[in-house]
Design a protein around this nucleic acid. Structure first.
Lengths: 144, 144
DNA sequence: TCTGAAATAGATCAGAT
DNA sequence: ATCTGATCTATTTCAGA
């Protein structure tokens, strides 16, 4: 992981579809060497996958909320229960008063309510505090 | 936006690097027709960009925290101030007691503390409540 | 580990159904 | 709107430094 690798990752975060020749030119290497470096970054798991960023509202997920989930038991083994709720985009174990924090996207607030209902159905869950997002300022790649 | 478009988006979210031929086969179209649909999805802004997912810990951002930012003034015009803090990955205006919620990634908790200091320096900010993530269960694409 | 070129494969376009 | 087939471009591999 040197500066060239970091530069390559940054360029790929901005546009993963660009030709290796363009990528190579931006870091001053040949296409072959660039290809080899990117291959290794993938192999080592630094780059997890290539994906597309989608406009949530355009695919029927216009409502975004963060939900703090309180519990009466250790939630460390409950990953599968959260995975089972399709509308949950992220789930994290957190320090502090709540136990788990989830990021939820739904089409409507009615569907958000239904997600809260399903969260309550998970073993050990004793409460939820939903924070609804009114406007997203920005969502951007990791700093390097 | 029909079922084929949704299927294409889902496949591209899983692997945006796959050949159009493979993508086409998975939805029962020709490569040409598939290419045309994907082009239109990009043109309409449904697909915003092609990018790579990076392991945060591998690039020096192993600490993840969500910070609720309280304020004494309307924060709707403060986008630039939050954008100016590089460690902030997401910033949202929220309903509820706080005004803004930000997602922060840093290498260490010391750097997280420094981000909080810079948040306090923003006009109108009167307080912060940081929630540190201990373990990420999962982060996954949008449901379709 | 990088370079440069050759072989392979995929993207793109024109024309037709 | 989709398909087929031809052209063009990019990716991938490999020998050599």
């Amino acid at each position: 992981m040197d500066d060239i690798d970091r530069a390559l990752i940054q360029r790929l975060q901005e546009d993963a579809g660009q030709p290796y020749a363009a990528l190579a030119a931006s870091v001053g290497l040949s296409a072959g060497a660039t290809h080899e470096r990117v291959r290794k970054l993938r192999e080592r798991g630094v780059i997890r996958r290539t994906t597309v960023e989608v406009d949530p509202a355009a695919v029927g997920s216009g409502v975004l909320a963060y939900v703090m989930v309180d519990s009466t038991a250790w939630m460390g083994d409950s990953r599968a229960a959260f995975e089972g709720i399709a509308e949950i985009q992220e789930a994290h174990i957190i320090a502090g008063s709540a136990s788990v924090m989830v990021k939820v996207r739904t089409a409507t607030t009615e569907q958000l309510q239904d997600v809260l209902r399903r969260l309550y159905a998970i073993d050990g869950v004793s409460g939820t505090q939903a924070t609804v997002v009114l406007e997203t300022f920005f969502e951007r790649p990791l700093p390097l």
